[in-house]
């Protein structure tokens, strides 16, 4: 038996949670609402990036339309909760329904993942990328044309259910579940598909099954992430889930390291914080010097930093390595 390290992970997660909660207390005020919203966004991006990494980094497929899955999750869960809110306006008591809606959103996205997984059996590399890109756009255009969910105006009036605690819990479970999957025999099979499909097939890995599994599980968690995002912002619009957002996720995966869950977590957190701190840094520069630096320049610096990361760490920040905590040790004795 290997050491599964789940107790350690849980302990650290709970401690981290308590720390953030204490720091965000009004009486301490170290983390105000602004920092909390960045943390919440980072956590959601962790879910989205880790789930994309499962498809791109671990199963070795290529998805350029990952936000399409998130859109399905956002719209399915958003529609359910807005309907429930209309029927019974008591927000506080509807948390179980909310969690159910988020999971249903994930299931909706997983069904889409299943549908998309099939063409991936015949397509590879660039061709698969184009197909998934098309899929993302199809989702966006379909949403644009359904008046019931607001068309291009977006789905409005979504209740604000996504609190830090909820998002944190979902992120924790996502990381644990994907980590366990990757390090199970299924995960090994997925890695084998990535490394060499023919060889994997030869040693008896059902490549079809594992490619589709990668898409289904990845899409499920993307749907969860999308649902949480919609209930954080209280709005879901088709453009939010377009190609640009999908490409951004891909940047996170590459910057963190293909196939490394740790890398995805670091990248999602680091880059979300980076873009915000750049803005704060520019603000204070303007304050100190009295010269007004436009906030538009932050994007230039951000892009330059990304280029530097890719130049000096071609394989991403973590490469394919994992933090010790996320590795299930093989017992050899």
């Amino acid at each position: 038996m290997g050491k599964r390290k789940l107790p350690q992970m849980t302990l650290i997660a709970v401690l981290l949670y308590a720390l953030i909660k204490v720091l965000s207390l009004d009486s301490i005020g170290a983390l105000n609402g602004y920092f909390m919203i960045i943390i919440n966004r980072s956590l959601i991006f962790v879910i989205l990036t880790v789930s994309l990494n499962l498809i791109n980094g671990i199963t070795g497929q290529f998805s350029l339309g990952h936000m399409g899955f998130a859109a399905v999750g956002a719209y399915v869960s958003g529609t359910i909760t807005t309907l429930v809110l209309k029927l019974s306006p008591d927000v506080a008591s509807s948390y179980p329904i909310f969690i159910g809606a988020i999971i249903l959103g994930g299931i909706g996205a997983a069904i889409m993942g299943f549908v998309i997984g099939f063409p991936s059996l015949r397509l590879k590399g660039d061709y698969l990328a184009i197909m998934t890109l098309g899929f993302g756009e199809v989702i966006r255009i379909i949403l644009n044309n359904i008046n019931y969910v607001g068309g291009p105006r977006g789905l409005l009036g979504i209740p604000k259910f996504s609190t830090f605690t909820i998002i944190y819990a979902f992120t924790f479970f996502t990381i644990v579940l994907i980590r366990n999957l990757v390090q199970s025999s299924h995960g090994r099979a997925m890695l084998a598909v990535r490394e060499n499909e023919v060889a994997a097939e030869l040693v008896g890995v059902d490549t079809t099954r594992y490619k589709v599994l990668g898409f289904v599980v990845g899409a499920f968690f993307a749907g969860i992430g999308g649902g949480l995002l919609a209930h954080l912002l209280q709005i879901a619009t088709p453009t939010q889930y377009g190609f640009y957002a999908s490409a951004l996720l891909l940047v996170y995966v590459y910057a963190g390291g293909m196939g490394s869950i740790t890398g995805s977590i670091i990248a999602a957190f680091g880059l979300t914080f980076l873009s915000q701190f750049l803005q704060l840094g520019f603000d204070s520069l303007s304050n100190m010097t009295g010269i007004n630096f436009g906030s538009e320049w932050t994007m230039v610096i951000y892009a330059l930093l990304l280029i530097l990361i890719m130049l000096y760490k071609t394989e991403g920040l973590m490469g394919m390595k994992e933090a010790k905590l996320l590795v299930i040790e093989e017992g050899t004795k």
């Binding site: 980076l274 701190f277 750049l278 704060l280 840094g281 204070s284 930093l305 000096y312």
Partner: peptide, 18 residues
């Protein structure tokens, strides 16, 4: 890499300054 760490740290500091 140290430079990246430095960049991030200086930004955090700049943020705190603000």
């Amino acid at each position: 890499k140290p430079f990246a760490l430095f960049a991030v740290l200086s930004l955090v500091l700049a943020g705190a300054f603000f």
